[in-house]
Design a protein around this nucleic acid. Structure first.
Lengths: 251, 251
DNA sequence: CCGACGCTTCGGCCGCGGCCGAAGCGTCCC
DNA sequence: GGGACGCTTCGGCCGCGGCCGAAGCGTCGG
């Protein structure tokens, strides 16, 4: 019997992602930053020659894009779509396998606040997005979220250039499903601008390696303020401050 | 340097999907129907022994689930999440590669109306979902769509048991991004019930093989009626980015 | 009870593809 | 110009994993 239309399409990209070395590289790139080929090689634990081959393949398949700059070649994820697929694959694996062991402080922090490609993800980001919807800063629209007029002021007050984000060629304010939370948070150009602003204001701080975002005191104040400003939606919603309350999920 | 947390998680599932034979099987299962191991073997073009091994691996990883029934073992996709990841991978491949050749009638029909796991997808489904939103039958809510009170009547008139869909353990009315359209359509328990009802009423007819859905005369009348009942939204419905030439409106 | 059938397990074959070191090319900086 | 550095290409090694046929187990039906 003839195979139906879609199969070779599916397997191509998946086979690329499926190699552990390439997956490690993509995992690194998930923070949205660009990396040189050598950096990726050492982070993934292979020789530069090997990494080079991987990068070439992933570029051809549209998973990553490369920018030459001097004698360096900077590699980054090709698009937010790629990032989202990677996040979903993580979600799949996390729920298919048993929860293994209790989560450590490292992983708790990672689930709490991290960067996903170029925007803000994790428990805290989901709570923020939901609070913004309750406060009528954001509304759900046909293409994800949409800031209200009142909401545009909120973003501007944070230092986000809403007009520039809207003018961007990419989706303006998509919603992105969080793998650890299974709830939406703000992505797209506006999400990226928001993360940028939160970093600039020092409410979030990137760790040097990895995607985990630390939440310093000023950030804890900020999020507590913004999230609690609206009627609590349920008993469990609170606790934005602590970054390692042994967030044990699922028995 | 130590690899960051997520990599092995990502590559596991992806490696499974990445094998062409397994991808072929998953592609077949994307129509939501359960298949016996032998059927899958012949559809994927391998010996039963080979297929058996693949099925075991995919089951362990939570990609498919198996139900023994007499001497048959029925295989189906494990969840709507898996189906969505597969659809997204297709989208990625379709946009990374050039459109290759002009789309044939086969593929045009496939893009127009097909089943995606257990719900209705394709151009027509996207148009229907958007029309239902315009007519206030559906609204966008925090977890995808939500039927209005008036909308519940609409669904019931079609023979959809809304209360049962809502009681189901799975997500009630998620929105699912269409790979060929890049726009949302109705998924989740309500989406599944809707497809069921449309098939029962004869507005859609499954082809024996593959996921393409044919739209007989009664269905064409139904969709024309339901979609046109609201003001047209704009001249060109699609995003300018991915133009599909000759989206022939099947006869 | 026996044969047909569906499925799985086992053993062995084989090829694809990841890996590296060495060599080559381009860029930068002294 | 020369050397250090980043990256790529090439050749060759090697192991993982997909594939099959044969054999074994369970189920169904006459």
């Amino acid at each position: 019997m003839s195979r139906t239309i879609p199969d070779p399409l599916i397997s191509e990209a998946a086979a690329l992602i499926g190699d552990p070395t390439r997956a490690a590289m993509l995992g690194v790139l998930l923070d949205g930053r660009a990396r040189t080929a050598k950096e990726l090689a050492s982070l993934a634990g292979v020789a530069p020659a090997t990494a080079s081959g991987h990068i070439a393949k992933m570029t051809a398949a549209g998973l990553v894009s490369v920018a030459s700059q001097g004698r360096h070649r900077y590699v980054r994820l090709a698009s937010a779509e790629v990032a989202e697929i990677l996040e979903r694959l993580m979600a799949l694996a996390a729920f298919a396998r048993p929860p293994r062991r209790a989560v450590g402080a490292e992983e708790a922090a990672f689930r709490h606040a991290r960067s996903c490609y170029d925007h803000f993800a994790g428990t805290l980001s989901v709570e923020l997005a939901e609070a913004l919807v309750r406060r009528d800063v954001l509304r759900r629209g046909p293409d994800g979220f949409e800031p209200t007029l009142h909401g545009e002021r909120w973003f501007r007050a944070l230092g986000v250039d809403v007009a520039r984000a809207r003018a961007s060629s990419r989706a303006f304010a998509r919603c992105c499903l969080d793998w650890s939370e299974r709830r939406d948070h703000l992505a797209g150009a506006l999400g990226a601008a928001l993360l940028e602003a939160l970093l600039a204001k020092g409410h979030l701080v990137r760790r040097k390696d990895g995607r985990t975002l630390d939440v310093p005191a000023s950030g804890r104040r900020f999020f507590a303020e913004e999230i609690d400003r609206s009627p609590p939606r349920s008993a469990a919603a609170g606790r934005p401050g602590g970054e390692q309350p042994a967030e044990q999920q699922r028995a």
